[in-house]
């Protein structure tokens, strides 16, 4: 039966059918692709999550030498009110000797305020050094207990396995004492 169908099928008819099948296939593929996108996009952060993606921090209660941790996008953000000595220490380092070359001036907007995401760039632990009783590492900044990365008073990696400095989030000073992170 299939033989006689093939025989009676003219060359022209065959081509037209192939073209139609191709069109149908293309439509199907495009349709499936368009249908898949909303499902994938639904995994992205939802509107309520995005609405919480900025946080305002009041700096007035933070005494010089103290640090606080605020939660921003589910991660800790370190806000440190640095002492003159700490700033001096951070400024004195030669940039070209660093693993991740960044000057202290590039990492802060106001010298006394160091604001960073408190997540070790090695494997994502939260380094110690926020509380006065914490170990602060060999460079007076932060120390990550997981694999022993040492950060200096500018949050730059100085020793240990971490490849990068602690990252600085996008932030801006709304006033002298109010910072918006994110």
């Amino acid at each position: 039966m299939s033989a006689h169908i093939a025989n009676s099928d003219s060359e022209d008819g065959q081509t037209r059918r192939d073209f139609l099948l191709l069109t149908a296939g293309a439509f199907g593929a495009v349709g499936a692709g368009c249908f898949a996108w909303p499902f994938i996009d639904s995994l992205n952060p939802a509107a309520d999550t995005l609405a919480m993606s900025t946080v305002e921090v009041d700096l007035t209660p933070i005494q010089e030498g103290q640090a606080i941790t605020v939660k921003w996008r589910g991660k800790p953000v370190f806000v440190r009110h640095r002492t003159a000595a700490e700033i001096e220490q951070a400024r004195a380092v030669k940039v070209e000797e660093l693993r991740d070359r960044e000057s202290d001036a590039d990492r802060v907007k106001k010298d006394q305020w160091l604001i960073m995401v408190g997540v070790c760039t090695h494997l994502g632990c939260v380094p110690l050094g926020q509380k006065e009783t914490d170990p602060k590492g060999d460079f007076g900044g932060w120390f990550c207990p997981c694999h022993g990365s040492h950060y200096d008073t500018s949050g730059r990696i100085r020793k240990g396995p971490a490849p990068k400095n602690l990252s600085v989030p996008e932030y801006s000073f709304i006033s002298d004492t109010l910072v918006k992170v994110g």
Partner: peptide
């Protein structure tokens, strides 16, 4: 609209295919 065109194409494909049967 997309489905309408797609269904139209499928109708033509089906018709052509079955014309011999």
């Amino acid at each position: 609209l997309f489905l309408l065109v797609f269904t139209g194409v499928m109708y033509t494909v089906k018709k052509k295919l079955w014309a011999k049967i």
